[in-house]
């Protein structure tokens, strides 16, 4: 693919040279982290404490680690997608300032150009989300660390997959945008909506049955669940080792969406990976085909 490396280099350079774009993308996860730690954390803490039968003692450190795991998984689930939308503005900027014309008069194929935008946005989004994951791990280290090395690797893999999904989704939506105003509006809508529909702000298990069924069709639901499973795996293992009843642990897993059901059928982790990676492949395929058919 002639020019792909050069396009990726150019797009990535432009992202980091645009300080406004870079800091806007970086500030989104930071605001979410502060919001979770100062406000939602207390709500989750109380909710967890009430989930245990009266009289059952739960060590404060374990409770904090459980809340922390839920917070970090929610944060990562939201920012992998919202940061992708914030970072993926160059393809619209190129249309607005006419640079797109200068690229399309070259012999480079539309698919190469599409992949250039996709991979560059993937790199910048991944970098920011890995920084967010690092901040999340530091937070977990402070409130209570129960993660194994495998859990950490799986969380990072989940982040990678979800970023691929977020960038592919934003690429398809941004493909139709032609002004800065449109793309900012889309970014704002996605930032406010996505946290709800993927179960990051509030577990899907708390929603009505109809809504739960509708959300079970969205790949984001399974991405959040994957992150939550891996972020809280250590806490549940510790509870099991401490002799907490299996029913209580399973009940907790249900309440916080570690267990997700598709029409009453429990979805296994391997199936969640299949759904998420399948969605990534389909979305990238759609995006590439759209770019191939672009010439008006």
């Amino acid at each position: 693919m002639i020019g792909l490396g050069s396009l990726i280099k150019r797009n990535t350079k432009l992202f980091f040279k645009d300080k406004g774009l870079f800091f806007t993308s970086l500030i989104t996860p930071l605001i979410l982290l502060v919001l979770y730690a100062t406000f939602l954390g207390n709500v989750y803490h109380d909710s967890f404490a009430m989930s245990f039968p009266e009289g059952m003692e739960v060590p404060e450190k374990l409770l904090d680690a459980a809340v922390g795991g839920q917070l970090v998984s929610s944060l990562l689930a939201v920012c992998c997608v919202t940061v992708a939308f914030c970072s993926n503005m160059l393809m619209v900027q190129d249309k607005v300032n006419g640079t797109r014309k200068d690229l399309t008069i070259t012999p480079v194929k539309g698919t190469t150009m599409a992949l250039g935008y996709y991979i560059a946005t993937l790199i910048s989004t991944l970098l920011i989300c890995l920084l967010a994951a690092g901040a999340g791990f530091l937070y977990l280290g402070k409130v209570g660390w129960y993660l194994s090395g495998k859990d950490v690797m799986l969380i990072l893999f989940d982040v990678f997959l979800l970023v691929m999904f977020g960038v592919a989704l934003s690429s398809i939506i941004n493909f139709f945008m032609s002004t800065q105003g449109q793309i900012s509006a889309v970014g704002s809508i996605v930032s406010s909506m996505y946290g709800f529909i993927c179960g990051a702000y509030m577990p899907i298990s708390q929603f009505s049955e109809g809504l739960q069924k509708a959300l079970s069709f969205l790949p984001g639901t399974y991405a959040t669940s994957l992150l939550r499973n891996h972020a809280m795996q250590g806490v549940f293992a510790e509870m099991k080792a401490d002799g907490y009843p299996k029913e209580i642990i399973n009940g907790l897993r249900d309440v916080i969406d570690c267990n997700v059901y598709f029409f009453d059928q429990k979805v296994e982790l391997s199936t969640m990976y299949l759904i998420l990676s399948g969605s990534v492949v389909v979305l990238i395929g759609i995006y590439v085909v759209m770019n191939m058919m672009k010439r008006k």
């Binding site: 150019r10 350079k13 432009l14 040279k17 006419g98 640079t99 014309k101 200068d102 008069i105």
Partner: peptide, 13 residues
């Protein structure tokens, strides 16, 4: 080769 009416190069680079 095309010289466009307005410069379309990347201003930040």
């Amino acid at each position: 080769g095309v010289v466009f009416q307005d410069s379309v190069l990347d201003k930040a680079l």
